[in-house]
Simulated assay, not measured.
Amino acid sequence: MALIELERVRHLLVCPRCRSTLADARGGLHCTSPDCPYQASAGFPVSGRWPVLVDFERSVLSREEVATGAGTDLTRPIPAGRADRLPAALARVWKPPNRVAPQNVDLLLRALPGPAPTLLVVGGATAGNGVDAVYRDPRVQVIGFDIVASPMTQFVADAHQVPLPSASVDAVLVQAVLEHVLDPALVVAEIHRVLRDGGLVYAETPFLQQVHAGAYDFTRFTASGHRYLFRRFEELAAGPVAGPGTQLLWSTDHLVRGLTRSDLAGRVARGLMCWLRILDRLVPASYAMDDAPAYYFLGRKRDAEMSAAEIVAYYRGAQTTA
């Protein structure tokens, strides 16, 4: 795995509130700026081996949860999902491989500069679907963080305030994360900030997808809305992650769950109707743009941003206006 050791990342970490450098303190880290509220010796705690670099006054994660272990246990590795515990053949039915991510990640990796580029994974507590190549490439130096701790992360942080300096990484991967943050535009602004000039971003974000993660699911984007979210990036590739067949399959799953009040019944229905995904291949791209479960975006950092007129003209779906 290309994940950088915490000791090698430590010198990059900054205060999430004011971005000043950090210093060691008993039981954690503190900000070195005398004007920062996190300058006190109890500024940022450590949970297990993970520094918790969160501005608690502006986050869904509280200091009390970290201190008492309430809510999510930060020191406990995230358990494998149901699909990961199934035999390979059944796992592919329940959680089919993402067919667009490997292609786009390959484009991302080939576009990275230099012999040892740095790639930041936002929400990296678990490996995303189809992005394994990021962790297998010996050339890439991976930094990962999430709101929960994981063997695949070096620190805990809130994506609204990334505790890294400006222009410090070459690429960012943010897959199935932006629906779980309160202010996606602020998170994308943080991604833009930490990227070096010409840095790359790869994102996948839901559109027609049912609520997941319960109370921590907030937002959905159309294709045009997703593009405008990344308006300060040059588009290299963008499109639907899957099509209407997949969306119908997920809706069937949740319809059966609602009728039967049983998650198991929904999962069984999803397995029996898995052939619906094949229909994605029969749907033209323009129609898929209007009815996709999720969209991807691969882009390069720039200073200029799209105008209102440009985003209206960007629409690639099948609908026409009179």
Rank of each mutant, 00 (worst) to 15 (best):
R196E: 14
P206K: 11
A203V: 12
A213R: 11
T222E: 10
H226A: 14
R193S: 04
T205Q: 12
A215R: 12
Y202T: 01
R220K: 05
G198H: 12
E204D: 07
H212N: 12
G199A: 00
R193D: 05
F221V: 02
A203R: 02
E204K: 03
G214P: 06
A215G: 08
R220G: 04
A189I: 15
L208H: 04
G214Y: 09
L200P: 05
T222P: 02
G214M: 13
R196M: 14
Y216S: 03
A213E: 13
I191N: 02
R196I: 15
Q210M: 11
V201G: 06
L195I: 03
V211D: 14
L208T: 03
G225K: 05
L195T: 00
Y216G: 07
P206M: 11
D197G: 15
H192Y: 12
Q209W: 13
Q210A: 11
E190G: 01
E204M: 10
A215D: 05
R193I: 02
V211K: 04
T222N: 00
V201I: 08
D197N: 15
H226M: 09
T222L: 00
G214V: 09
V194A: 01
D197F: 15
A223V: 06
G214W: 13
R196D: 13
Q210Y: 10
E190H: 03
H192K: 13
D197H: 15
V194R: 01
A189K: 15
Y202K: 00
Y216D: 08
D217T: 01
I191L: 02
H192G: 14
P206S: 14
L208P: 06
V201S: 06
I191T: 12
D217G: 09
Y216A: 07
A213G: 11
A203P: 09
H212Q: 13
A213M: 11
R220E: 08
L200D: 09
A223M: 02
L200H: 11
R196T: 07
F218Q: 08
D217M: 10
G199M: 03
R220Y: 01
A189E: 15
V211Y: 11
L200F: 14
E190P: 00
Y216T: 04
T222Y: 01
H226E: 04
Q209I: 09
T205W: 07
L195E: 03
Y216Q: 09
G198N: 10
I191W: 01
E190Q: 11
V211M: 11
F221P: 01
Q210I: 05
A189V: 15
F207Y: 14
R196Q: 14
T219W: 01
V211W: 13
E204W: 06
L195M: 10
R220W: 10
R196C: 14
F221Q: 06
G199D: 06
D217A: 03
F207I: 03
A189H: 15
G199N: 04
I191S: 01
F207N: 14
A215W: 14
H212Y: 05
R220D: 07
G225W: 08
R220C: 05
T222F: 03
H212C: 04
F221W: 00
Y216M: 08
L208K: 13
S224N: 05
S224R: 05
V194C: 00
Y216N: 05
F221I: 02
A223E: 10
A223W: 08
V194I: 03
F221H: 06
Y202L: 04
F218P: 02
T222G: 01
A223I: 06
V211G: 04
V201P: 04
E204I: 07
T205C: 15
V201D: 07
G214K: 14
F218E: 11
A189C: 14
F207C: 12
